[in-house]
Design a protein around this nucleic acid. Structure first.
Lengths: 214, 214
DNA sequence: CGGCATCGAATTGCAAACAATCTTGTGCAC
DNA sequence: GTGCACAAGATTGTTTGCAATTCGATGCCG
């Protein structure tokens, strides 16, 4: 089951939503998507069912699919869930990371420091994603990795906002450094705490943005 | 999209897997399921896609669907993820639970105590599930609730085992009491810690069972 | 002029037939 | 007797067509 065609369509739809080409609340007409992706309607359909099941689109009977809009309150919820799961991953990484992985993580962190120094916030944001991914990989925790990936997918439209809060970037770097140091020091408790600390600050920044907008 | 027929088939397949009528690693033939559920093959198919997406069955191209077997190592992972998420729920419940909800939770707990006293382990296990559900409901955290539900669904085949570990039930009751007390006391930190403590003990019991079997 | 019923177009949901792929069993060669 | 090629059956994947439902527009009535 789940033919390559469906997998492909699923991935491509995901990235279309990720990249913002398909906007939240936009109506997704099966026929249009089928033509756009050069596949049949049935393939689009099952891809949409899968996207619906992981909460990226909402499916209403006879009314089709829409890109799910994530409210500010939901974004906070998602971030809270991510926080405890990524903290779990950081804890595991502190125990299971190989020396090589620790080196890689350190290198990513120093790259981020340089980006900050250059004022390259976009590059910093990319480094941020890379660092989190490296930590999750080092944790060797399939379940946590899967759940976090799903949560991240739902939050795409919020990602780029928090880094713009004034003064956030410097704090962010310090928080990441604490996480990396704890992992390198093989201190699971400290790694978990540091990651939770970090993501609770992201949450605060997000709330800040949400308030300003409402 | 997602017609009532599909929803129904999805739910029924889920409970067939839950109840153990469809065993892990059992091959799920679309035609057979269609006849069994009195729906068409197409309906079964999309229900299977959904079940596949939340990790309850595995779908292999041209080879059909099977009920996913959860290894002992995976069960531990799932339990760890559940632990941090339920701890988050307990924390939120300590903040957001209404007085009425606290009363309900207390009543469930005392019911569990009676079941233990009567030596009714099965009834205790049910009370356990009810209590966790009540705490999650009180937390008003949709995201955590959804993730936990998904994780529980994957673990069905392991649920009933841990309570059989000698002496486990008494400890279990004490742990639950600590969680409930913290929530009633409106102490988020204590509630979170108590829930993590509880589930880490479940994890230990699970590992115990896993070792005995291998 | 505004509100409401009705009709039509667009879109989704469903079913059946067909094609592609895998699996199993049989027979043949060595 | 063992291993491999091949064919038949079973099962999944895809296409096509049709039925059911919703949404919007048009016209009618108050």
């Amino acid at each position: 089951m789940t033919s390559p065609a469906v997998d492909d369509a699923y991935e491509r739809l995901r990235s279309l939503i990720f990249s913002g080409e398909l906007m939240p609340n936009e109506r997704l007409v099966e026929t249009d998507l089928a033509e756009r992706l050069q596949v049949t309607r049935a393939v689009v359909r099952t891809a949409l069912v899968r996207l619906g099941q992981d909460g990226i689109v909402v499916l209403t009977p006879h009314r089709g699919a829409r890109v799910r809009v994530v409210t500010d309150a939901e974004a906070v919820e998602i971030l809270q869930a991510r926080a405890v799961l990524e903290a779990l991953a950081a804890r595991q990484a502190a125990v299971l990371a190989t020396a090589r992985e620790v080196t890689t993580i350190r290198r990513i962190l120093s790259g981020m420091a340089h980006k900050i120094a250059d004022g390259d916030l976009l590059g910093y944001s990319e480094g941020n994603a890379t660092l989190h991914a490296a930590i999750i990989a080092a944790a060797r925790h399939e379940t946590a990795a899967r759940l976090i990936a799903g949560l991240r997918a739902q939050m795409v439209r919020f990602q780029f906002r928090t880094i713009l809060v004034p003064g956030r970037s410097a704090h962010s770097l310090a928080e990441h450094t604490a996480v990396v140091d704890a992992i390198a020091r093989r201190d699971p408790d400290a790694a978990e705490m540091a990651m939770r600390h970090h993501l609770s600050h992201v949450e605060a920044a997000l709330s800040h943005v949400a308030r300003r907008r409402s």
